[in-house]
Amino acid sequence: MKKVYEGKTKDVYELENGNYELKFKDTVTGKDGVFDPGENQVGLTMDGAGDANLKLTKFFFELLNKRGIPTHYVNCDIENKTMEVIAAKPFGKGLEAICRYKAVGSYLRRYGLYIKEKTDLPGFVEITIKDDKAGDPPISPESLEILGITSLEETKMLYKLTKDISDIIKEVLAEKDLELYDIKLEFGRDKEGNVILIDEISGGNMRVYRGDEYIDPLRLPGLLLD
């Protein structure tokens, strides 16, 4: 296999059949040794993170595929911490879609002058560009079109898919008395140009609480899947 990309939490390999393999690592995003799904850098290494992230990713992608949500998921190998996906191109150099149900993380850091921590939010969506040097800034639909990253129609689809997917995940978590505060998703285009969900859906890119207790990403598979 040919390695085509080395990421913060996954490496990507090209397969002979034209698909790609994602190799999950034990690194998570954060800052100063503290996990934060909204951060744009590797914050720490957590033994078992790759295995935990892949188990949740498998569960959620298979659920979404059954619900008719377009994704890049094909299958996965839990033992080897790998996932096979169809080919997809990111928008520009990469976009992230964040759905927010509580005022925490980077949202609170930006707007703390106007809102208290953990205030309820209406599950609204923010699109950010993946740019470590710029701090992954939020970007408007108009700017996305001006820069040639997405069309306005594609941006509408990004917002709709993000909200639909996030609401499904929030409902699944609620069945186990878990509350989703926010979640970060990624999208791209398949070979036909369709907008599809890519990357992963795991404890490493969402913030989950049970009451006032923050749920560590490594605990989430046991609480949700057992």
Rank of each mutant, 00 (worst) to 15 (best):
E16D: 14
A52C: 08
C99L: 05
N65D: 15
K58P: 00
Y13N: 06
L15D: 13
L121S: 09
K89L: 08
R67I: 00
P37G: 11
V12Y: 08
L144C: 08
P37C: 03
E21P: 00
D26K: 02
E96D: 09
Y73V: 01
G30N: 05
S106T: 09
T71S: 10
N80A: 06
G30P: 01
P138K: 12
P122Y: 13
K81R: 15
T150Q: 03
T119P: 00
G94F: 00
T29S: 11
E84Y: 07
G38E: 15
L108M: 12
D32A: 14
T128C: 05
D36G: 06
T128W: 10
N17D: 15
I146C: 02
K118E: 14
Y111C: 06
P122F: 09
F91V: 00
G123H: 10
L147D: 06
G50M: 05
K130A: 12
G50A: 11
T57E: 06
N40P: 00
T29K: 15
V34D: 08
L54I: 06
N40S: 12
N65H: 01
I78V: 13
K130Y: 05
A134Y: 02
K118Q: 07
N80W: 01
L108A: 09
H72D: 13
E145L: 05
E14T: 00
E117W: 03
V125G: 11
E16W: 04
N19A: 10
G92W: 05
T82M: 05
Y73S: 07
K118P: 00
L54R: 14
K133L: 14
E21K: 13
